[in-house]
């Protein structure tokens, strides 16, 4: 009997401002996960400048790949496939990962697996524990706020999403008003711990009979509150402002997520995306589940796996590869790639 060779996927991620390359074993075990972050550069501009992001990626991509291979202790002969994020994201940034992944795959005659970045965020949870279908995923990141229903492995249906700003985007924009450096999510999270929800900002769409979100009204209410106070020469408590903003976001997210879990009868809830790092969101969801649906299994990746990284792409690639996903050498970046909406899936 020969021992079964493990499946090893070399995964590239470059959709925004992190260049990351990972080696993932059997879709569940991180052998390496090298992440090069451009935050130091992009915070000069208060947000990600696409051309600057693309330039940094070119300088990082082979370095990250080499380190990923070395840390994992693997050679090309050990690899099963090469995977890459091909969307959604910044087109120029995506193209660096796509070009590099194609070159490695072609040079070593390995299959190329195209991965949706948002599938990556969800499958970060598989690096924590097995997923049980059907499940619900609350995807909250810099560019997305979606409730995704999964009937089975690799099957995604959007049942609700944001009509305007994404949750992470709202954190970052509100952070700018509070003079917090980009990206502000973590800083608002920390600041909120020192304050209280005293401003009672609106909870948009919380009662609507759908699973959609809207955060631009909250953002405007926040900005108005701060500006009006400034004009009166009044000083508002920053921690209270942060806590009030965050409470509004979390309230809506949790109310709709719990409702969706019950309506769809899922046994597991995955929290994913950069905003999943938010400590108040994590604990509020945990207690909502305790109170309303104690049998619901809650999975949330560790913070390092919530923001963009190659390991989550490798984990998703494992699932998509088993479903037959293969890219040809003409694979292009698709900046507006999206899961299908539930009604499209039914039709």
């Amino acid at each position: 009997m020969t021992e079964k060779k493990p499946e090893l996927i070399l995964a590239f991620e470059s959709s925004c401002d992190e260049t990351s390359v990972a080696v993932v074993e059997d879709g569940v075990k991180i052998r390496s996960n090298v992440i090069a972050s451009q935050i130091n550069s992009q915070k000069r501009f208060g947000g990600v400048v696409p051309e600057v992001a693309s330039r940094h990626h070119v300088e990082q991509v082979t370095l990250c790949a080499e380190e990923a291979m070395t840390q994992a202790g693997v050679t090309y002969g050990d690899l099963t496939a090469v995977a890459v994020t091909y969307g959604p994201g910044l087109v120029g940034a995506l193209l660096i990962g796509v070009s590099a992944a194609k070159a490695v795959a072609f040079a070593h005659q390995l299959p190329l697996i195209p991965v949706n970045h948002m599938a990556g965020h969800i499958y970060a949870a598989r690096l924590v524990k097995p997923l049980v279908y059907p499940l619900m995923a609350l995807l909250v990141s810099g560019g997305h706020t979606e409730l995704v229903y999964m009937r089975g492995a690799g099957e995604f249906e959007i049942i609700g999403d944001t009509r305007d700003d994404a949750a992470g985007e709202a954190f970052d924009k509100v952070g700018r008003v509070l003079n917090l450096a980009y990206p502000a999510g973590k800083k608002i999270d920390d600041l909120s711990k020192l304050g209280q929800d005293t401003f009672n900002f609106p909870r948009a769409m919380i009662k609507d009979a759908n699973y959609d979100f809207s955060f631009s009204g909250l953002k405007s209410a926040f900005i108005n509150k701060v500006h009006n106070a400034e004009q009166r020469g009044e000083k508002l408590s920053k921690p209270d402002l942060a806590a009030s903003f965050q409470a509004s976001v979390i309230d809506v997210l949790i109310t709709k997520t719990m409702r969706a879990c019950q309506a769809y009868g899922v046994g597991q809830l995955v929290l994913a995306g950069g905003v999943a790092a938010n400590s108040a969101l994590r604990s509020a969801l945990t207690s909502a589940i305790d109170q309303e649906d104690p049998n619901l299994d809650f999975v949330v990746p560790p913070i390092r796996l919530c923001s963009d990284n190659g390991a989550m792409i490798g984990a998703a690639a494992h699932v998509m590869m088993a479903r037959g996903a293969r890219a040809d050498l003409d694979l292009n970046a698709d900046p507006s790639l999206s899961f299908a909406y539930a009604e499209e899936v039914l039709n």
């Binding site: 051309e51 693309s54 330039r55 070119v58 991509v61 082979t62 790949a65 080499e66 090309y76 087109v91 120029g92 193209l95 660096i96 070009s99 590099a100 194609k102 070159a103 490695v104 040079a107 070593h108």
Partner: peptide, 17 residues
């Protein structure tokens, strides 16, 4: 910019790998 990045990324990745 995008064009030269595609060629450079492809060539450097080939040479490296």
């Amino acid at each position: 910019y995008t064009g030269i990045r595609i060629a450079v990324t492809t060539a450097k990745t080939f040479a490296w790998t």
